[in-house]
Design a protein around this nucleic acid. Structure first.
Ligand code: NAD
Ligand code: NAD
Lengths: 229, 229
DNA sequence: ACGACTTTGTTCAGGCGTTCACAAGCGGTT
DNA sequence: AACCGCTTGTGAACGCCTGAACAAAGTCGT
């Protein structure tokens, strides 16, 4: 019996698996048939041992002495991360950021497809972005119902993000990606991931200050790696 | 002796401090004079005890039995995160995403100011975005030198991100925020933070599948919190 | 057919981060 | 002036993740 491993996969590992998958897709396009953990790790910017540990959650998927089959590992990762099926997403708030996301081709290639664009601004409604018409936000519930969207992406102003989130949850959306700078409150069983660009910049500024601004204050800074973490 | 605490601050804590700071700024605008850790934690979407521990890295900054002074804590956090001084940033790749970032007012209010917009496309060069003209990417080194920019934001296609990064590093930029889906390689002493939206969506899809798609495969999912993590 | 080399998969230890729980301290009240 | 309730600050335990070392296994060369 194959007896698929019931091991649970840490969330940090899942995020890295997605990165490996993208690297593998590029390698496959380049015609490569095999990769070693060292090469893959270098391309993904992680430690080789850590990469092997990550992959081990899926069970053995390489050949000792040889490495990993590029196509084989790609398919295995695709499977583990949710299969090939297209994931319908709705996007609320088609402003500057929302328009950029709706236009972006990189999501579709990974199986994420925007099937509904919603906005409240009459000037925005009706405009076509990325081949899709912007619809009034009042139709949010109808759009989710008719498209069976499972992921909601919020790019509205912060003040209305919670109410938009509540409406998404109320019609069954259980996965939400939030770009507004607020902490959303959701019932158990709903996953929210937040992207906060101001925080990223602030962390960079802090690390820079720590390195140069006030050397006496914070001495034993961890030595930085040669490659991005 | 005051003897400022030489304690090092974990990076995860720094990221949360930035969130607290934003919440406090909103509270100060609302006229509040004091907050408890519980209320602040709820607004930031974290555990109250964790919040107090985070703040304790800055030394005592609250009053027992009362709470934290909104203005006082805001100033203390501002200080810890790098002071009030404006941080000049350059942005490379003024496409859809880059334009949205350049236009965004939320960065300036936190002290991050774009002082240079670079692109290679002749159609983009000369256009004004967010009050700043787009300049040819050939002038990157000159722009960094004349503006003393310390942070570089990369929103170019993935293929050229590494070369853009190398040029930034060569002229002294030691903090880089990367939106391109590649792992940048940098020398020690340079910090790179990566924002990968595809990975965020992929993680959401995985968690969703784990919850419903194949229940027999991964059973003991951690109970989700009532609020965003 | 055998041996040596390469690369994986796993195990172990160490460090971080998070959480809980409690003592210390301050303001308000009697 | 002393007490009481409230909130902070911190100490300790727990669990997760990361990084390194080792053993298993397969392949290539002879
Ligand atoms: N643009 C950036 O670079 C950037 C960076 C970081 C964070 N953010 C955050 O992302 C969000 C969007 O930013 P933006 O720059 O695109 O702003 P924007 O003003 O350009 O776009 C917001 C859009 O949301 C729409 N909207 C307003 N209320 C709505 C509602 N109730 N329902 C549906 N749509 C509604 C508006 O009509 C507008 O089109 C904000 O919360 C912002 O803080 C943006
Ligand atoms: N748009 C999104 O929603 C989104 C989401 C996730 C990731 N990304 C990533 O962000 C990056 C930009 O995405 P986008 O949608 O804005 O793409 P885009 O094509 O709209 O913009 C890219 C810009 O970079 C410029 N450019 C190309 N080569 C350059 C060079 N050598 N130097 C300077 N500028 C150069 C182009 O002229 C263009 O203006 C890509 O790497 C993309 O994968 C974008």
């Amino acid at each position: 019996m194959p007896q698929s491993r019931p091991r649970i996969i840490p969330e940090a590992t899942v995020a890295r698996l997605a990165v490996y998958l993208r690297v593998l897709a590029g390698l496959a396009d380049g015609g490569r048939s095999h990769v070693s953990s060292g090469e893959l790790a270098s391309a993904a910017g992680v430690n080789p041992a850590g990469l092997r540990k990550d992959l081990s959650y899926l069970g053995p998927c390489g050949v000792r002495g040889v490495g990993y089959s590029v196509a084989g590992l790609r398919d295995r990762l695709t499977d583990a991360l949710g299969g090939e099926r297209s994931r319908p997403c709705v996007l609320i708030g088609i402003g500057r950021l929302g328009s950029a996301l709706a236009d972006y081709a990189g999501f579709a290639s990974r199986g994420f497809e925007f099937v509904g664009l919603l906005d409240t601004d009459p000037a925005a409604v009706g405009r076509r972005v990325g081949g899709l018409p912007v619809r009034p936000v009042a139709e949010l519930e109808a759009v989710v119902a008719e498209t069976q969207a499972t992921i909601g992406v919020i790019t509205t102003p912060a003040e209305v993000a919670q109410s938009v989130c509540d409406r998404l949850v109320s019609v069954g959306v259980r996965s939400i990606l939030n770009f507004a700078p607020v902490a959303l409150t959701v019932p158990a069983g709903v996953d929210v991931r937040k992207v906060d660009l101001s925080v990223e910049l602030q962390v960079l500024a802090f690390l820079d200050q720590q390195r140069h601004g006030t050397p006496p204050l914070v001495a034993p800074l961890r030595a930085a790696q040669g490659s991005a973490r």
